[in-house]
Design a protein around this nucleic acid. Structure first.
Length: 880
RNA sequence: GCGGACGUGGUGGAACCGGUAGACACACAGGACUUAAAAUCCUGAGAUGGCAACAUCGUGCGGGUUCGACUCCCGCCGUCCGCACCA
C-alpha cells in the first residue's frame, strides 16, 4: 500500500472542530463526581503567544486530558490578565484605545491557543478588563474595606518615574521598577493598601502545609515574610540632652544578649526623634535630607558608606544608670522596619562594626568562642573590623558572663520584662516581620477603578453596591504623561453617595495583581451574579494543580494566598476550611534558544533564527546571515526574548509541523522544571516520531489482528513479550504523567514504539492480537500528549469514538512482573556477569547458579568466598 | 553577606527505597534501498588498551560509612537562582 505521510497542519483543525462541536471539554459542576481543577497561569494579552506559553499550556493540557480519562470531572479554564501598562503604552505610541488593543490581542491569542488543541472549557473564558469581571472585584474591595482589610494611608511609596505610577515593594527589583526598569524614587502619597500583614503569621505557618509546592517557592515566601524573634527595648533618654517631649527611645533587637557591648544608638533620618532634634540643628536637618535622597539601587546601597550624625542626645543603658551611649542619625537605618531605631553592638554585627570604625566608636566584644585558644584570634579579628557572629560564651557582660548567647537572651528578657518604666515593662518579647502591607493604588487608566468617592464633608465614601460597577470612561486621552482618569473632564465629578453634594471619584486604579489574585475562583462560576457561587466554589476549589513560571514565586502567589483568605473573611470563599487556593504548584522551566548576531559589530545586532542559515555540526557549526551572505556569530543560549531576537514563533511551528509536534517536543527530553533548549533538530525529531506512529498504525492495519478480534487461546513467547512491554508502559506512563515527569513518559512511549516496530517483523502465536492491543494502547497513551494524531489514528483503527472521551486503559497486573529475572553477579562489588533465574528461585538456588558461572569461578581465582549476599531479583555479591 | 538548587557520554537526559550507570532521544559513523537525493530501515559507539576474548578506569574533586554509593555522611571546587544595610 502506498504510505502517505500524516499531514498534521491539515488534520489538526478538523479534530479541533470535532471537539468543539461535541463540546468535549465543556465542564459542569457535578458534586456527585470527583473533581480535578487543573490551571495554568493565565496570560497577559500581549498580542501573540510565545514558546513559554506553549510549554506551560501543553503541560497543563496533558494533565487535564489524563485526569479526564481517569474519570475525574476536570475544570481546565482559560482567561486573560487583561489590565496593565502595555495597553496604555500602545495607546500613547500608536493612538489605539487600550480596550481595542487588548481585545484585538485577545482574539489573536485565542486563535493561537485554539490551534494548539488544548482541552479548555472556553465557555468559562474571562477577561479581567471586562466590567462583568471587575464589578465583582470592586464589590469585594468594598467588603474588605468594611472589614478593615483595605485602608487608606499616607505612605512613602516607590514611585516609578517612567511609568508614572506607584509600585509595591514586591515590584521593585534591585531598586528598579519591575516593568520599566527605571530607578525608583521615594514619594509621599495617599495610598490604598491591602492589610496583608493581618495574615502574616498564618501565611508563614501555612507554608508548612503546602506539601505539593516546590520547597524553593516556600522558602522564598518565608524569606520574604521574614520573621525574626527579638525584644522591644525602651531606653531612657538623658533629659539634659533630649528634645522636649522625647524621654525615651524604643528599639527592636534580635540580640539582647549583646547589650553590654552596646556603644551607640542609631535612628532613621525619618524617625520622630531625628525630626525633633533637626528642628534645632540645621546641620542635622541637612544630613537627614541627604540621606533621603540616597538611591535605593543595589549598586548604590552596596557602595554607600555608613554615615552618621551625632545628635548629641544620650541614652541610658537599661542595666546601668551611669552608662550612656550617644544617639546618631544613620543613613542605613530603615524607618519601616522595627521601630526605625537600633542599639549598635559593633562586636557582633557587621554593619554596626563598620559604622563604629568609621566614627571611632568603642568596640567591645561580648561573645567569644567556647574554646579558650581560639578566643584571642576572634577578638583580634573583631578589632580589625570583622564581627564575631558565631555561637560561643558571653564575656565582658557582668551577670551574663559564662552563659551562652541564647541563655543570655532569655536572662536579659526576663530581667527587663520585670522592670518598668513609667508603669510599663522596659522590654517585651516581639516577633517582627519584614512583610509590609500591599499598596495597590496605581495612577493609571487601564486598571480596575477603585470604587470610592471623596467628599469634602463625608470623607471617603464607598460607592453603593447598586451603583457598581464604576466603569472606565471610553473617551480618555493618552497623549500626556500622568493619569488619564485624573485629567478627564467629567468622569471624576460625581455627587457624594451619602450627602449628595459635589464630590470626586477616586482616580487611582488597582494594581493589576489584584485582578489575578482571584481569577481562579471566578473560573468556578464565571457567570455568577455574585463574585463567587459558593456551591460551585466549594466544589472546585482548591486548584489541584497550578502550573506557571517561577517568576511569580512571591508576587502573584503570595497575593493570591492573601486574597483567598480575605475572601474567606468577607464570605466569598472559605468552604471546607480551605484557606489555600493552590493545593499543588509546579513551576516550569523557561524555553531557551541560541542567539545569533552579526559578526564584528558593536553594540551587538541580533538576528532572528529565521534570518540565519546554520551549517556543519558540533564545534564546526557556522552561521550565515541569509539576506547578506555574511558570517554571523552563534552566541550563548538564553531565554527567548525580543531583545536578543532568539525567538521562535509558535504559529510558524504549528503551521509547518503541527501543534502535536510542538507539544511533543516540549514534553520530550528536558525535565519540566528545567529549561528546555529549543532546537530545529529537536522539532524535526518530534516530527519524525509522529510519522513513525502513523506508520505503526499502517502496519497494524496491514498485519495485526482485526479490531475486536477475540483473544487467542494461545499466546506465544513473542506475543507475551510484547504484551508485557505494552502493559508496563501503560503502568509507567500513567504514573509519570501524574508526577509531571513528562520527559520520562515520553521515553517510555518511544520504548514501546520500538518494541512494537520490532514485533511487526516477527511472527508467533497470538502475536497479531498482541500487536493490535499494543497499537491501540500506544495510541491511547499518546492521547494526552499528541491529541490530534491520536484521534486520527484511533479513527483509522476503526473507532468512531473519540480518544478524548475514552477512559484511561488499565494495565493487567499479571503482565507487570516477569517470570524470569536477570540478576547481576558481582565479586567484591564489581559486576562480573549476569544470571537469568526464575522469579521464584530460592536464595540457595540463585547462589548456587551464580557460583557456577565460569566467569565467576575465573574471577575468584580459587579463593574461598567469605560471604555471599543475595538480594532477591536484584543482585548477587560474592565477597572474598 | 544570607538562603537554596544543581554538577552523569559529543549533547539533552534516565537510573524505584543504597543493588547491572548511561534507558530514551539528539548528533555522529558504517551499511541497505535509490540513477541520485530525501524519506525509511539495519548496525555501532562512555574512555583507554587489545584483532578479539577481555582488562582497567569511569556519575565535578578529596575523604568516610557499606558486601555494594550517581544515590547516604563530612570537607572542597564550579555553575545557576532568590534575597539583601531587616536591627
Amino acid at each position: 500500500m502506498a504510505i502517505e505521510r500524516y499531514n498534521a497542519p491539515e488534520r489538526e483543525p478538523h479534530w479541533q472542530k470535532v471537539w468543539e462541536q461535541r463540546q468535549t471539554f465543556r465542564t459542569a459542576t457535578d458534586t456527585s463526581r470527583p473533581k480535578c481543577y487543573v490551571l495554568e497561569m493565565f496570560p497577559y494579552p500581549s498580542g501573540r503567544i510565545h514558546m513559554g506559553h506553549v510549554r506551560n499550556y501543553t503541560m497543563g493540557d496533558v494533565l487535564a486530558r489524563y485526569k479526564k480519562a481517569q474519570g475525574f470531572n476536570v475544570l481546565h479554564p482559560m482567561g486573560w490578565d487583561a489590565f496593565g501598562m502595555p495597553a496604555e503604552n500602545a495607546a500613547m505610541e500608536r493612538k489605539v484605545h487600550p480596550k481595542a488593543w487588548t481585545y484585538e490581542n485577545i482574539a489573536a491569542m485565542k486563535g493561537q491557543l485554539k490551534s494548539m488543541g488544548l482541552s479548555l472549557d472556553w465557555s468559562r473564558e474571562i477577561a479581567t478588563c471586562d466590567p462583568s469581571y471587575y464589578v465583582h472585584q470592586q464589590r469585594m474591595f468594598l467588603d474588605m474595606l468594611r472589614e478593615g482589610l483595605v485602608y487608606r494611608r499616607s505612605a512613602k511609596v516607590n514611585w516609578d518615574p517612567v511609568d508614572h505610577t506607584v509600585l509595591a515593594n514586591e515590584q521593585v527589583i534591585d531598586g528598579r521598577g519591575w516593568r520599566s526598569g527605571a530607578l525608583v524614587e521615594q514619594r509621599d502619597l495617599q495610598q490604598w493598601a491591602f492589610r496583608i500583614t493581618h495574615y502574616t503569621q498564618d501565611l508563614l505557618e501555612a507554608l508548612g502545609t503546602l506539601e505539593k509546592w516546590p520547597e524553593k517557592v516556600r522558602l522564598m515566601q518565608a524569606n520574604w515574610i521574614g520573621r525574626s524573634e527579638g525584644l522591644m527595648l525602651r531606653w531612657t533618654l538623658d533629659a539634659a540632652t533630649a528634645p522636649a517631649g522625647h524621654s525615651e527611645l524604643e528599639v527592636f533587637t534580635t540580640r539582647p544578649d549583646t547589650l553590654f557591648g552596646a556603644s551607640f544608638m542609631a535612628i532613621a533620618p525619618d524617625h520622630p526623634l531625628a525630626k525633633a532634634a533637626a528642628t534645632k540643628d540645621p546641620n542635622l536637618a541637612a544630613f537627614c535630607d541627604e540621606c533621603r535622597r540616597m538611591g535605593t539601587s543595589v549598586a548604590e546601597i552596596e557602595t554607600a558608606e555608613k554615615k552618621g550624625y551625632d545628635t548629641g542626645i544620650k541614652a541610658v543603658h537599661p542595666f546601668d544608670p551611669n552608662w550612656t551611649v550617644p544617639v546618631y542619625v544613620a543613613n542605613f537605618i530603615l524607618m519601616d522596619y522595627g521601630t526605625g531605631a537600633i542599639f549598635g553592638c559593633p562586636g557582633h554585627d557587621q554593619r554596626d562594626i563598620e559604622f563604629a570604625k568609621k566614627l571611632g566608636l568603642p568596640i567591645l566584644p561580648v561573645v567569644a568562642p567556647k574554646d579558650e585558644p581560639k578566643r584571642g584570634q576572634a577578638i583580634a579579628k573583631v578589632h580589625e573590623g570583622v564581627a564575631f557572629l558565631e555561637d560561643g560564651v558571653m564575656i565582658n557582660s557582668r551577670f551574663l558572663d559564662g552563659l551562652t548567647p541564647a541563655e543570655a537572651f532569655d536572662e536579659v528578657a526576663k530581667r527587663l520584662e520585670a522592670e518598668t518604666l513609667a508603669g510599663t515593662p522596659v522590654a517585651q518579647r516581639k516577633i517582627n516581620y519584614r512583610l509590609r502591607d500591599w499598596g495597590i493604588s496605581r495612577q493609571r487608566y487601564w486598571g480596575c477603578p477603585i470604587p470610592v468617592v471623596h467628599c469634602k464633608d463625608c470623607g471617603t465614601v464607598p460607592v453603593p453596591h447598586n451603583q457598581l460597577p464604576v466603569t472606565l470612561p471610553d473617551d480618555a486621552t493618552f497623549d500626556l504623561p500622568g493619569n488619564p482618569l485624573d485629567r478627564h473632564p467629567t468622569w471624576k465629578h460625581v455627587d457624594c453617595p451619602k450627602c449628595g453634594k459635589a464630590a470626586t471619584r477616586e482616580t487611582d486604579t488597582m494594581d493589576t495583581f489584584v485582578d489575578s489574585s482571584w481569577y481562579f475562583a471566578r473560573f468556578t462560576a464565571p457567570d455568577a451574579k455574585t463574585p463567587t457561587d459558593r456551591a460551585a466554589l466549594d466544589y472546585w476549589m482548591p486548584v489541584d494543580q497550578y502550573i506557571g513560571g517561577i517568576e511569580h514565586a512571591i508576587l502573584h502567589l503570595l497575593y493570591s494566598r492573601f486574597f483567598y483568605r480575605a475572601m474567606g473573611e468577607t464570605g466569598h470563599a472559605g468552604g471546607k476550611n480551605i484557606r489555600e487556593p493552590f493545593a499543588a504548584l509546579f513551576t516550569q522551566g523557561m524555553v531557551v534558544h541560541e542567539t545569533y548576531r552579526r559578526a564584528g559589530v558593536e553594540p551587538p545586532q541580533w538576528l532572528l533564527p529565521t534570518e540565519v542559515a546554520i551549517e556543519g555540526d558540533g564545534d564546526g557549526r557556522k552561521a550565515t546571515e541569509i539576506a547578506t551572505g555574511k558570517p554571523a556569530i552563534i552566541g550563548s543560549i538564553e531565554k527567548m526574548s525580543k531583545s536578543k531576537k532568539n525567538l521562535v514563533d509558535p504559529d510558524d511551528i504549528i503551521q509547518h509541523w503541527g501543534a502535536d509536534c510542538a507539544r511533543w517536543f516540549m514534553l520530550s527530553d528536558s525535565p519540566p522544571e528545567r529549561d528546555v533548549i529549543w532546537t530545529e533538530a529537536g522539532v524535526s525529531s518530534a516530527g519524525r516520531f509522529m510519522q513513525r506512529v502513523w506508520r505503526l498504525v499502517d502496519l497494524a492495519i496491514e498485519k495485526a489482528a482485526a479490531k475486536d478480534a477475540p483473544r487467542p487461546e494461545s499466546i506465544g513467547s513473542e506475543a507475551l513479550a510484547l504484551r508485557r512491554a505494552t502493559h508496563k508502559a501503560l503502568d509507567q506512563v500513567g504514573r509519570n504523567i501524574e508526577a509531571l515527569r513528562f520527559n520520562v513518559a515520553v521515553a517510555q512511549l518511544y520504548e514501546l514504539s520500538n518494541a512494537l516496530s520490532e514485533a511487526f517483523g516477527k511472527s508467533g502465536d497470538g502475536l497479531g492480537w498482541a500487536q493490535r492491543e499494543a497499537t491501540e494502547l500506544l495510541v491511547q497513551m499518546l492521547g494526552p500528549m499528541m491529541p490530534h494524531l491520536a484521534e486520527e489514528c484511533w479513527a483509522r483503527l476503526g473507532y468512531n469514538t473519540l480518544i478524548a472521551e475514552q477512559p484511561w486503559p488499565k494495565a493487567e497486573p499479571a503482565l507487570l512482573v516477569d517470570d524470569t529475572v536477570v540478576v547481576a553477579v558481582q565479586v567484591n562489588g564489581k559486576r562480573r556477569d549476569e544470571l537469568s533465574v526464575s522469579r521464584s528461585a530460592t536464595l540457595a538456588e540463585v547462589e548456587a547458579a551464580a557460583m557456577g558461572l565460569p566467569s565467576i569461578v575465573r574471577a575468584l581465582e580459587g579463593r574461598k568466598p567469605k560471604k555471599v549476599i543475595v538480594v532477591p531479583q536484584r543482585i548477587v555479591n560474592v565477597v572474598v
